[in-house]
Design a protein around this nucleic acid. Structure first.
Lengths: 215, 215, 215, 215
DNA sequence: TATGAATGAGATTTCATTCAT
DNA sequence: AATGAATGAAATCTCATTCAT
């Protein structure tokens, strides 16, 4: 791993573990095994580093969601894919996703505007799937916008507690969350999740991870 | 509001908005309209303030949950109460609850141990309600522990997005979340939520808030 | 001398001796006999300190020039007063005036605009005296604007080399410069400088200095 | 222009514009369109660069003054040449001359000693011309040393305000300053400045500039 | 000739905290 | 109860410089 990569990896790890404001430049330097002056060969300001991490993660999420739902007409299938993707991403990349979810307040106004725009673009895919399902009569929910936020928070929460050492394989985790979400939407439990394999592949591809049994 | 109360209120507000590490002692002082030296008449260290806020909020949550579920045998009713209570608390007191949910990492080891113990005690009430419901055959879930975490994250998320200015009255919000949770647990939608009034009263009492129409 | 005054005095001394960029915050602190953190009780940023020093000095110069020339009709008398005042100020307060003359480039754009406006206001008094003298036929100069700049630079230069330990009393210095200036303007040497005493008093008053024999 | 020349030119420009301490090695590098490491192929330390610039400029001034006054007996002619030369050099090479005039304080003790010695040698030519003129009765001045410093500051000031875009041709500027100086020295205005052409040529030769109409 | 990588020292400024009044 | 004064430690970031390539 090059020095530049080590800097970025250190930032992802530490911002996730201790927060942006809780992570000092010296923490980053020692984690990256560099002097603090040397960090600045590979980054702009500390905030630039944060912005880069957040926008990259959000773009990947968007990219993955686009790939997984492209061409799908069935709202149930789309929502199931979105949930599975989101859960897989948060379980497989908890650090990046925690940074995205927790550090928006640490951004300057200008950067926050850009990041929130990306996040809104991503969430609109969820909103569309839900409203399509409601329109098609396959989802029952009195307050679709509230439900969307509730499901997103539920799925994002995975990054806060999931451990790769836990007993549950990622496939089962994703399947379980898809069932929880469909249950919350008043939809009879899906008997099959035929697109889960595809979701795994999309996540692996977008995040540069090897596709391995059990991930 | 006394100076001491202003200090505490400032801390709750700013820790929620900018995080513990993102909030300086001078920020607290100006928000409390006091000099930074004067703060120290009303607090110990900055961390003491955080610990006090977190333990108070968790004790209130525990207290409320105890009151609302005391004597209830039906696991469905208990879970519904827990969800309603949790959502009401997070919607009505977003600042305190965000601090509890976000700032655990900022605690020293000793303090974190105590706070996490409280949180675990609270979560065990959820675990018990779910496992009782599964045992009683009224809940269907393949992974009760995962489901518990998923529902908790879903409900806690309310504090991250809910605005008191939004169109949805708190009663409806709580009801909606109870339905989402029961749906996720595979339970037919409850036709009545007869204990919601009680939940509102418990929350209002525990958090010293007036019970008013629409809260 | 209070701490705040010591900070300002340290800045004047060091900015004059080593330049703004050549003076570190630690230099200021040790000169003011304070820790570098304590400096910040008495100042904003280092640049704020510079701006305050420059604007104060320029306002005093303007104030003094206004007082010394108020009501004077004769352009020769006015110019003589301006020269004497300028020279006295630069000889008696070399540090402040050197900062004004040398550190304009160190200012940010916003601050420079304000400072230059003050300087221009001051210089316009010189321009007026010269053009009035030319119009009245008592001054001969082919390029009044160039002459003004030449005389100003000549007089400001005093702060760069004059030592209070030198043999020449300030009165004589001022008189000599007035003669140089009038000579350069093609005016027969003035036999009397009846307003010099007044100039001394104005300078002493505006700069809070005791009026003493030989200054 | 070779890289080495670009480095030197960058230093002259930036030291003049922002001061030695206000100019960073990175500023030099980007102005010279080189990496900061590459600078060190063409220079020693940053201070070496400053010393080289200052001594070169002073030697050129000395050289030019020597050439222009060599063999001249008339003190009036000598002083007129010195003034013209000085003004021409400061107007035509404002950057180099500003560095010489402003950055003496930035030098280390050893280097300052050498530079000041050169400056003193140069100024002694002025001192000699003035004292010769006083002895010959063609100059009237009560304090020759003060007058010398006053005239030098007046003439050096040109580099601080003169713009090549201004309306006044360099010849006229130099002539005007010569008249100012002679006026200040109590000498009747010279009707002719027959050596101005020679001064221009000397300056052009010493500073490697094309002699062009209007310079 | 040219530079990317690297750094110890130092820049300015803020940190949480104490204490005499 | 309240604060101005004060500070050691630490914050983020830049400095001039070196060196292997």
């Amino acid at each position: 791993m090059s020095s530049g990569e080590r800097v970025r990896a250190a930032a992802v790890k530490l911002f996730a573990a201790k927060g942006f404001h809780g992570t000092g430049i010296r923490d980053l330097a020692s984690e990256a095994e560099l002097s603090s002056a040397s960090l600045y060969h590979y980054m702009g300001t500390k905030e630039d580093l944060l912005v880069e991490i957040m926008t990259t993660a959000l773009r990947r999420l968007l990219d993955a969601a686009g790939k997984a739902t492209a061409g799908a007409v069935d709202p149930v299938a789309r929502l199931r894919s979105l949930v599975a993707l989101h859960v897989l991403a948060h379980a497989a990349r908890p650090a990046e996703t925690r940074v995205v979810d927790n550090e928006v307040d640490a951004l300057s106004d200008a950067a926050r505007t850009r990041v929130v725009a990306l996040r809104d673009e991503y969430e609109s895919l969820w909103a569309q799937a839900i409203s399509d399902g409601v329109a098609a009569g396959v989802f029952q929910t009195a307050h679709p916008a509230v439900t969307r936020l509730a499901l997103l928070e539920m799925c994002s929460g995975v990054a806060r507690w999931h451990s790769p050492l836990g007993p549950l394989p990622l496939e089962d985790l994703a399947t379980h969350y898809a069932e929880l979400a469909l249950g919350a939407l008043g939809h009879p439990v899906a008997v099959a999740v035929p697109d889960l394999r595809q979701c795994l592949e999309v996540v692996a591809q977008v995040w540069d991870m090897p596709v391995q049994p059990g991930f």
